[in-house]
Simulated assay, not measured.
Amino acid sequence: MKKQHSRPNILVVNDDGITAPGIKNLIEAVKELGNVVVVAPDGPQSGMGHAITIGKPMRFNKVDLYEGVEMYKCSGTPVDCVKLAVNKIFKGKKPDLCVSGINHGLNNSINVIYSGTMSAAVEGAIEGIPSIGFSLDDYAEEADFSHCLKYVKSIAQQVLDNGLPQATLLNVNFPKGNGIKGIKICRQANAKWAEEFDERQDPYGRPYYWLTGVFQNNDKGEDTDVWALDHGYVSVVPVQFDLTAHHAIPLLNSWTFND
């Protein structure tokens, strides 16, 4: 069991940008738990997944947005923010916790693959830092995060007190509204986006496309993140970044390959 004997250092990141309301609320939720350092993109980076900046320079500047909080804005991706924080701010001495969000919009089910919020948390876990991604089922700029904060603080405190299994992080999603019934530990639902591309024409008659789609849940289980959120619970899914399909290895070993 991991015990903190001094005030822990907490890295706060996001993908909606350093001025997003979600990160302000995340800072408020965790600042009593430790020394907060914020590194966030200088603008929205939603849907960036685990992208990193290669082949062009990044800007990394200190800013003063919230009193008593050390903050930096970065021209790169959410994952870049974590990498820069570890290397340039903490200088290899890892923070005790990395929290990402609070994202405007859910990152449940397959969304975890595309999410910049969750990829920042994954990068934290790759660096050996206990990490959590937080998201809310509300895309509005004026979204109300107030009902999330006590759960953010409680979950973050549990991770600080107990640590997480190696190579594991948490994906936490909040339903919209004040009627939260509690927390459910879940698995990721088997759900996906049925995507379409809306074709339009610019003033010169050239086609361009908007990505649209409908979220389809093919999983009827009552132990999934989709079910929990639909029924008013906070969903907490343990996530790993080892993408090996271990159950498929015996099948592949049964195949005959030509040398």
Rank of each mutant, 00 (worst) to 15 (best):
1 M>S: 14
1 M>F: 08
3 K>P: 00
3 K>M: 04
5 H>W: 04
6 S>H: 03
9 N>T: 05
12 V>Y: 02
12 V>P: 00
13 V>K: 00
18 I>N: 00
19 T>Y: 11
21 P>A: 09
21 P>R: 13
30 V>I: 05
31 K>P: 05
34 G>F: 01
34 G>Q: 00
34 G>L: 00
35 N>F: 01
35 N>V: 02
36 V>Q: 02
37 V>D: 03
38 V>F: 07
41 P>Q: 04
42 D>A: 03
42 D>L: 02
45 Q>I: 04
46 S>I: 12
50 H>C: 10
51 A>Y: 01
53 T>A: 02
54 I>C: 04
56 K>R: 10
57 P>L: 01
57 P>F: 01
59 R>M: 05
61 N>I: 10
65 L>A: 06
70 E>H: 02
71 M>G: 03
72 Y>C: 06
73 K>T: 09
75 S>Q: 02
75 S>M: 03
79 V>W: 01
80 D>P: 06
81 C>V: 04
81 C>S: 10
82 V>R: 01
89 I>H: 00
90 F>Y: 15
90 F>H: 01
91 K>G: 03
91 K>Y: 04
95 P>D: 05
97 L>V: 00
100 S>D: 06
100 S>F: 06
105 G>P: 02
108 N>A: 09
108 N>R: 10
110 I>G: 06
111 N>I: 09
112 V>Y: 13
115 S>A: 15
116 G>T: 05
117 T>F: 07
119 S>A: 15
120 A>Q: 09
121 A>I: 12
122 V>W: 08
131 S>Y: 12
135 S>M: 12
135 S>Y: 10
137 D>I: 13
138 D>M: 12
145 F>D: 14
146 S>Q: 14
147 H>Y: 13
148 C>I: 12
149 L>Q: 14
149 L>Y: 14
149 L>W: 12
149 L>T: 13
150 K>Y: 10
152 V>S: 12
154 S>W: 11
154 S>N: 15
162 N>Y: 14
167 A>K: 15
172 V>W: 04
174 F>N: 00
174 F>V: 06
178 N>H: 11
179 G>C: 08
185 I>D: 05
199 E>V: 14
199 E>N: 02
202 D>C: 08
203 P>L: 10
203 P>Y: 05
203 P>M: 07
209 Y>R: 15
210 W>Y: 15
211 L>N: 15
211 L>T: 15
212 T>S: 13
212 T>F: 05
212 T>V: 12
213 G>T: 08
217 N>M: 08
217 N>R: 07
218 N>Q: 14
222 E>M: 13
222 E>Q: 15
222 E>W: 06
223 D>T: 14
224 T>E: 08
228 A>K: 06
231 H>E: 09
234 V>P: 13
235 S>H: 07
242 D>K: 12
245 A>P: 09
245 A>D: 09
247 H>F: 09
255 W>L: 15
259 D>C: 03
